[in-house]
């Protein structure tokens, strides 16, 4: 069984976002980059499947050289080899095209990734990859079990969840609680240094969508405090002042 896990290198969830160059670039100074939290779930489940079935895991990142620490960490957690497509991942269609091109060459049984990257939050790449490869895509996947060639999946829907079955190959966007995040051990970190990491150049078309500029939200006005013993006043204010109820 061959698994492909696609990962993003994104600012840590606690990052205060700041832009630079006239609001056209993220200011990376002082920002810690991490594996996308949802991608981490996908990788963790892949490692569990590897332990159970002896699958091989390839990690794929569409990103620039500064995402290599994240890729090495994925290798330390249990991936066998890695591919980095040397391009900035700003357009979902473009990223999906890169993943699909590599998938076409290698016939993976499962392509796993996070339900969305936490920078652009589009949550689109898995579906576009599925369409490009002509195979089903499912997201957000909360549980994944394999029974031979059949995947048994629980997917979150509005106000609940549904149990699904589908035949491999599949593309899945993952989220908790599919697996517990894994932390690399010392042996993993040592062996990760020598695992193969191939860098390839992007293929395909120009980006269909580009970002012209960024903006930060306007700060909220100051908070209006209501004494606890006059809590009822809040309801009046929401009704007459804020007019939301």
């Amino acid at each position: 069984m061959k698994l492909l896990v696609c990962v993003t290198s994104v600012p840590d969830t606690t990052t205060k976002i700041v832009f630079t160059d006239n609001n056209t670039k993220l200011n990376k100074a002082g920002v810690t980059f991490i594996t996308g939290p949802y991608d981490d779930y996908a990788l963790a489940r892949a490692v569990e499947l590897k332990e159970k079935t002896g699958a091989t895991i390839t990690v794929l990142n569409v990103g620039q050289a500064d995402s290599e620490p994240v890729i090495r960490k994925c290798l330390a957690i249990g991936a066998d080899d890695a591919i980095r497509v040397n391009a900035e991942p700003t357009d979902a269609y473009f990223v999906a095209e890169q993943i699909a091109a590599i998938a076409k060459e290698n016939n993976y049984d499962l392509i796993l990734m996070g339900r969305e990257s936490i920078d652009y939050n589009g949550g689109q790449v898995h579906g576009i990859v599925g369409e490009m490869l002509g195979i089903p895509s499912i997201s957000p996947v909360m549980l994944l079990d394999l029974d031979g060639n059949t995947a048994k999946i629980t997917r979150e829907i509005e106000g609940g969840k549904e149990s699904l079955e589908a035949q491999l190959p599949l593309v899945l966007g993952c989220q908790e609680p599919i697996a517990e995040w894994k932390i690399p051990n010392m042996r993993g970190i040592m062996t990760a240094r020598t695992k193969p990491l191939k860098v390839v150049e992007p293929t395909g078309t120009d980006k269909l969508t580009t970002v012209a500029s960024y903006e930060l939200p306007a700060p909220r006005g100051s908070v209006k405090m209501i004494p606890a013993d006059e809590a009822e006043k809040l309801i009046q204010l929401l009704h007459t002042e804020a007019k939301v109820i």
């Binding site: 976002i17 920078d119 939050n121 012209a212 500029s213 930060l216």
Partner: peptide, 19 residues
């Protein structure tokens, strides 16, 4: 060009859709 929410609501992007 459309404005979208990114970084989980921590910022906005102005996207040029070229297709």
């Amino acid at each position: 060009q459309v404005k979208s929410s990114i970084y989980t609501g921590k910022a906005f992007a102005y996207n040029d859709l070229k297709a």
